[in-house]
Write a protein that binds this DNA or RNA. Structure first.
Lengths: 176, 176
DNA sequence: CCTTATCTTTACGTTCACGTAAACTTCCGT
DNA sequence: ACGGAAGTTTACGTGAACGTAAAGATAAGG
C-alpha cells in the first residue's frame, strides 16, 4: 500500500499539491478544476507537457477559492466571471512589473488605472446586489414582525378560556 | 388590424392579463411562466380547461416578480425555491382561514407558527448571504484604496520630471 | 361572422456546468 | 524496479432552465 498525503518536497512551505488535494481542499472535484482551467478561469502552467500531472501552489488554491466564492455570491456565469476576473490578472501583471523596476511610470500608471476600473466594476456589482439583499431582508423582517404579532394576538385571545397552548415556544429571533 | 392592449373588462382595477402581457411586464417569456407553473412555483387556476387561455391578475404578476427576485438574489434552484416559497402558501392559507372566523385558535396558531418558521429560514439565508457579500465588499474597497494609493505614488514620482499625465482622471468613487 | 394576433399543447433542441466512463500514464513509496 | 493510487485525455451523458418549432385553438376588434 502506498498512501500519499500532499507530497512534500523539502522544508515546510512548498507542498506541491495535486489536483485531488486541491479539490478536497476547496470542496470540489478534479473535473471542475480542469473545466475552469479550460475556460481560462485558472491559468495553465505553460511548463506542463500534455499527460503530466498538474501541480498547484497554495496561491492557486486561493485563486480557486476566490473564483468559487465570486461565482457563488454574484451568481454570474463562468464566462462573465472570467471577464470580471481580468482585474486580478491585471493586478498580477502590475505586481510582476512592479518587481522589475525597468517599466516606465506611464505604463505602470496605465496598468494600475485599468485595474482600478475593473475593481470598480466589481464593487458596483457587489454593492448593487448588497442593496437589493438588504431590501429583501428588511421586508422579511417586517413580515416576521407581523406574523409574531398575530401569534401573540391569538395567544392573548385564548388566555381567558384556558391556559395558553404549551407548544414548543420556538419564537426566538434567528441569530443575527 | 386588431391591436389588443391588456384587455379591460369594465372599470379600472380588474384588467385580466394574458400570459404575454405578464411576460412583458416582468421581463421574461411566456415559456418561462408556463414552466414555473409546471414546476408548481405558480398556481394553476383550477377553473381553466385545457386549451383555454391563461389569465392573470395583478396579484399573480406580483407573485411572479417575487419568485424571480428570490431566484436572482438567493441563487437557488427552482426546486429549492419552491420549498422556500411554501411559506407564502402557508401565509396565504392563513389569510384565507382568517377571513372565515370558523377556524379554532389552535389551528390558527399552528399555521401562523409554521409560517413563521419558513420566514425564519428565508431570513437566515438572506442574512448569511448578506454578510458574505458585505465581507466581499469590504475586501474590494480595501483593494481599491491600495490601488489608488499606488497610482498617486506614481503620479507624485513623476510630478518632478514633467507635468503629470493628462489621462482621463476617472478615479472618482463609484456611486454608493 | 371573419380575421388575426396571441395563446395552447406537444415535443424536440440547446446551453451551462459539470458527471462519468474508458484506456492509458505518471509518480511516489517501498 | 515496481505496484498501485491518483492523474491524464477524450468523449459521451446529464440535469436544470429554458428556447424553438409545429399544428392547431381562442378571443376580441371590426
Amino acid at each position: 500500500m502506498a498512501a500519499r498525503g500532499p507530497s512534500s518536497s523539502g522544508g515546510t512551505g512548498k507542498v506541491s499539491l495535486r489536483i485531488g488535494d486541491v479539490a478536497r481542499a476547496v470542496g470540489t472535484t478534479p473535473r471542475t478544476i480542469r473545466y475552469y482551467e479550460e475556460l481560462g478561469l485558472l491559468p495553465e502552467s505553460p511548463q506542463r507537457a500534455s499527460g503530466r500531472h498538474r501541480i498547484y501552489s497554495e496561491q492557486e488554491v486561493e485563486r480557486l477559492r476566490e473564483v468559487m466564492r465570486l461565482k457563488e455570491l454574484l451568481g454570474v456565469t463562468l464566462e462573465e466571471l472570467k471577464t470580471l476576473l481580468s482585474a486580478e490578472e491585471a493586478r498580477a501583471e502590475v505586481r510582476a512589473q512592479l518587481r522589475r523596476e525597468d517599466v516606465d511610470a506611464g505604463r505602470r500608471r496605465e496598468l494600475l488605472t485599468q485595474a482600478l476600473g475593473h475593481i470598480d466594476r466589481q464593487l458596483e456589482l457587489v454593492r448593487h446586489r448588497g442593496a437589493e439583499l438588504a431590501r429583501l431582508e428588511a421586508e422579511l423582517s417586517e413580515t416576521r414582525k407581523r406574523a409574531r404579532r398575530k401569534i401573540r394576538e391569538v395567544d392573548a385571545r385564548e388566555a381567558g378560556s384556558f391556559p395558553p397552548p404549551g407548544e414548543l415556544d420556538d419564537a426566538r429571533e434567528p441569530a443575527r
